[in-house]
Design a protein around this nucleic acid. Structure first.
Lengths: 217, 217, 217, 217
DNA sequence: AATGAATGAGGATTCATTCAT
DNA sequence: GATGAATGAATCCTCATTCAT
């Protein structure tokens, strides 16, 4: 049987993919998306440029691989939480924590691949889908909260997008200022706003200028 | 009088700058930041490449011009509102409306220049400062609300960043889906969350996992 | 008569040419031959680029004008000395002094136009001719010395070229080191070598390796 | 063994460098320093433009390589002669011959790289140093002659520069006229002048106009 | 005649991709 | 499969020259 050399090959292949991922991340971190050339990735990954093209048909495919590998665990964690038996509010808290941890640990990749619109363009299908699916999952949780009577009736997708954007925005700001918050602090601010903001019996919403939302007053 | 040819020149110059702005925006829209080459901008602006370099010393300078022209009015409107005599909540509402209008009208530019990290990198000084100043203004308003006793005590910068990111995020999502919300709807969702989220006597905040806020469900 | 406005025009034209010359020299000095653009010359000359093209059909022509104006006085002085009633040795001395003064006063132009082969190429006809004519005049003097019996029989053109090159070379070296010699010192070294070198009854020339130059031993 | 492909690679590399050198020289010869574009060099070398950039990081580096390769052997020969046990006069003769041979064989390169001030500017460090070191070596020989009592007391650097310039000047003139002298003729004229010019008991130096050298008349 | 904006060919450099070894 | 040299299209920028005002 070839299963031995088969396994060996797969192992080697897996190791190479690891090397590529880490190399690419290192390059993205130091040089930015535009500065991420195949040459640099190859060197950082400790292999020849040609070898990259044996695994990935193009730079685009390589970046999609990196994106996928970076985002997948987060998406899976999110999907799992969505399936869990917790209440919607609890889920939001759990997600926030997981995200924070993840973003903190992989800030470099996310800085370029999650929020970079140039990347969005480059990775159109992959990335858009990915962000979109995250928003979908979040929306599902918000809807759950509405069904549970914990959240008030609201445009769930809009809130989901707000939540995702606000989460990323906070992290970005911290990156930019070089003053990261603790996970606890960050989650508290974020959820402090969103949970209250979604709560059913809220304080009067002093709308001055919003058409006829009289029932919210 | 020289004032005639003078005026004429200024007019022409102004028209050229308009053409450049619109050309650049068109190219940014169609090709993304990376695909925005001087050649394409020149063609879109209906002039020769060399002419671009008569106005702008470099691509960087041209992009800064575009960024500036796109963002300035918004920043000015924001600054004005910050100075106004309104309450903090009212200010947030006003800002949201203005932003919405603006973002809707200039979606293309903002899609690339406000939230594109590659642009941030390219326009480091200009763009960073610009986004930063927006966040600063927002934070000022949040602080005002805290002083007025309308908002609870909270990390104002964090909230400001969340608000800005959430606002942009919503618009982006709408762009991506091709289903823009009405200004009223958008502002209602956004402020519905943030005003409640910042209100003093809110509903209990059901934190599960944050420090010791266990009994707040 | 138009002679008044005629004169006026000529005067203006003459002033403009002066301005162009001085501007061009300033630019050559600061930016080198390659850095000498029509834009810079125009600005340094205090006029519009288009006006340059009213006087000179091309950059080439402008540079030829500059070269001509820089070199002409030297050539004329040289020609005059050639015609003079002095002995050949005296003429060499006189020429050396005049050159020195000239080179010192116009080092910038000469640094680029006399010894720069790129300029030679650019100014092929003008410059080559000019250098050539200088060498011709020098050769004439050397021949005079030979006829007078003061100089020994020798390849006059070769000596002339050596003399010219050595003169310029010394100045260049001084420019490069930033340590100009006094005119007296420079002339003394230069002529100290060449006059002895050309003298009839010289010291034995210890040629080791020169074929059969027996009469010089 | 890797030594086979190793050797093969080195051989190829060496051939490429030869091709580049010869291509560059050809282009320099035909188009001058300014006309020496990477495109033309690539074509003349029979390779793609990009390949040039695989070997040389920039045009500057490529030109330095050309300069180095052209000048090094001469400099080495010169340095060796300086070290030799010969008398100063003999050394001058030896050097003259070697130079002649070299300049004759590589006239094209030297026409641009040795005496071209634009090149000096471009290759500042490399070229300046190179010419300077040649002059230094020559000065050393002159000083040796002075110590030996063969040459009279004189500004050695000045004479060295004169000698170098005169040597190059002669060759240039010959290039320009297309009438090369034989090595023997050239060396005879050159040294005929310089050796006499440096000799101790020379003929009276007929200075007319030099400060106080009155007794030499 | 003066002006200076417009033009576009030309030049240095980068980099994704291919391919011979 | 691995390698890395070769390729050339694409990009930013410069500058001599033209021409409408």
């Amino acid at each position: 049987m070839a299963s031995l050399s088969q396994r060996r090959k797969e192992l080697l292949d897996s190791m190479m993919r690891d090397a590529v991922y880490e190399g690419a991340v290192a390059v993205l971190t130091r040089h930015g998306l535009n500065g991420t050339t195949m040459d640099r990735v190859a060197e950082a990954a400790g292999m020849a440029k040609g070898s990259l093209y044996n695994r990935f048909r193009s730079k685009q495919e390589l970046l999609e691989f990196v994106h996928e590998r970076a985002v997948t665990p987060m998406r899976e964690a999110l999907a799992e939480i969505v399936q869990d038996e917790m209440g919607a509010a609890e889920k939001l808290v759990a997600i926030s924590r997981i995200w924070r941890e993840y973003l903190g640990a992989h800030r470099a990749v996310f800085e370029f691949l999650i929020s970079d619109l140039a990347a969005h363009r480059l990775l159109k299908d992959t990335a858009q889908t990915s962000r979109s699916s995250v928003v979908d999952d979040m929306a599902t949780i918000v809807e759950q909260g509405m069904r549970e009577g914990v959240f008030r009736s609201i445009d769930a997708r809009a809130v989901a997008e707000m939540f995702v954007s606000a989460s990323i925005g906070m992290v970005e700001q911290e990156f930019a200022r070089g003053q990261p918050r603790s996970i606890d602090d960050a989650v508290e601010v974020l959820l402090g706003v969103f949970l209250r903001g979604l709560s059913v019996s809220g304080p009067a919403y002093a709308s001055s200028g919003l058409g006829g939302d009289t029932d919210e007053r």
